[in-house]
Amino acid sequence: MTIKYVIFDMDGVLVDSEPLWAESQIETLAQYGAVITEPDCEKYTRGLRVDELAVVWIKKFHLNIEPTLLRDEIVELVCRKIAEKAVPMDGIYPLLDFLKTKKIPTALATSSNRKVIKTVFDKLKLWDYFPIQCSAAEEELAKPHPAVYLSAIKALGATPADCLIIEDSVTGLIAAKAANVRTFIVNPKFADERFAIADERLPNLHEVLNILRQEL
């Protein structure tokens, strides 16, 4: 299969924001007497839409709070943290520049909402790389349903066979494969068997670039 388009997840792929999401959940929930850890966030909420992760914690700790309020508090805090200290994932700009030189169109397909997308793109100056930005917050069903990826494919005017998806989470991987798209997992824990359905499992974006240099 020839790669004609590349679709990127955002958190954990473009930006090193997963620790910031964990911090925001930990700090927000602490205000309601709920104690969680970063591994808890990895286990229960990584890759989920923020409205869904809010519901996860409310159910787990029987919190007397509206899901929309908890969602908004977490988003507000994570956006502040991203604006203050977010950094790009190692190797993302060389990869994006390579795709641009090869005239390979790119799109974003993220579980994050528009406010988080804007915060990340402003901080990392990503607007010129991604004319197409799709958010699962605007889909009826979130990842692991493939809806946001199918929307990105449609917006690109592509077919699944033309595309490559770059993901970092199990939830995102399931969504990408459900869209019938070749998928690379990029995660320091790439050898984890939960990622076994990925077409490639890689530790960082430099390895993605190495593969694409051979294929494009």
Rank of each mutant, 00 (worst) to 15 (best):
residue 4 K to H: 03
residue 4 K to R: 15
residue 5 Y to M: 00
residue 5 Y to F: 12
residue 5 Y to I: 07
residue 6 V to I: 07
residue 7 I to D: 01
residue 8 F to S: 05
residue 9 D to I: 00
residue 10 M to K: 05
residue 12 G to Q: 02
residue 13 V to H: 08
residue 13 V to F: 01
residue 18 E to S: 05
residue 20 L to W: 07
residue 20 L to H: 02
residue 26 I to F: 09
residue 26 I to L: 06
residue 26 I to R: 13
residue 28 T to C: 14
residue 30 A to L: 11
residue 30 A to W: 03
residue 31 Q to K: 14
residue 31 Q to A: 02
residue 31 Q to R: 13
residue 34 A to V: 04
residue 34 A to F: 02
residue 39 P to I: 06
residue 40 D to S: 12
residue 42 E to N: 13
residue 44 Y to H: 14
residue 46 R to V: 06
residue 47 G to P: 13
residue 48 L to K: 12
residue 49 R to N: 12
residue 49 R to Q: 15
residue 54 A to G: 08
residue 57 W to E: 03
residue 57 W to T: 00
residue 58 I to N: 09
residue 61 F to M: 15
residue 70 L to T: 08
residue 71 R to P: 03
residue 73 E to I: 11
residue 76 E to G: 04
residue 78 V to K: 10
residue 78 V to A: 10
residue 80 R to I: 12
residue 92 I to D: 02
residue 93 Y to K: 12
residue 93 Y to C: 10
residue 95 L to H: 10
residue 98 F to P: 04
residue 102 K to Q: 15
residue 103 K to E: 14
residue 105 P to Y: 10
residue 108 L to A: 03
residue 110 T to M: 07
residue 111 S to D: 01
residue 111 S to A: 15
residue 112 S to W: 03
residue 112 S to D: 09
residue 113 N to M: 13
residue 113 N to D: 15
residue 115 K to P: 01
residue 119 T to N: 09
residue 121 F to A: 00
residue 122 D to F: 05
residue 122 D to N: 14
residue 122 D to Q: 11
residue 125 K to H: 11
residue 126 L to R: 07
residue 128 D to G: 15
residue 128 D to C: 05
residue 128 D to T: 14
residue 132 I to G: 14
residue 132 I to Q: 08
residue 135 S to T: 08
residue 136 A to L: 09
residue 138 E to V: 04
residue 139 E to R: 05
residue 141 L to A: 02
residue 142 A to H: 05
residue 142 A to N: 14
residue 143 K to F: 00
residue 144 P to C: 01
residue 145 H to V: 01
residue 146 P to E: 00
residue 148 V to S: 05
residue 150 L to R: 10
residue 153 I to Q: 01
residue 153 I to A: 00
residue 154 K to Q: 08
residue 156 L to A: 09
residue 157 G to F: 09
residue 160 P to N: 09
residue 164 L to C: 10
residue 166 I to F: 06
residue 167 E to H: 04
residue 169 S to D: 06
residue 171 T to F: 01
residue 172 G to V: 04
residue 175 A to P: 12
residue 175 A to R: 08
residue 177 K to T: 13
residue 178 A to C: 09
residue 180 N to T: 10
residue 180 N to Y: 10
residue 183 T to D: 01
residue 185 I to H: 10
residue 185 I to N: 07
residue 188 P to G: 14
residue 190 F to D: 07
residue 191 A to V: 02
residue 191 A to P: 00
residue 192 D to L: 15
residue 193 E to A: 11
residue 194 R to K: 14
residue 203 P to E: 08
residue 203 P to Y: 05
residue 208 V to G: 09
residue 212 L to I: 05
residue 213 R to T: 10
residue 213 R to C: 04
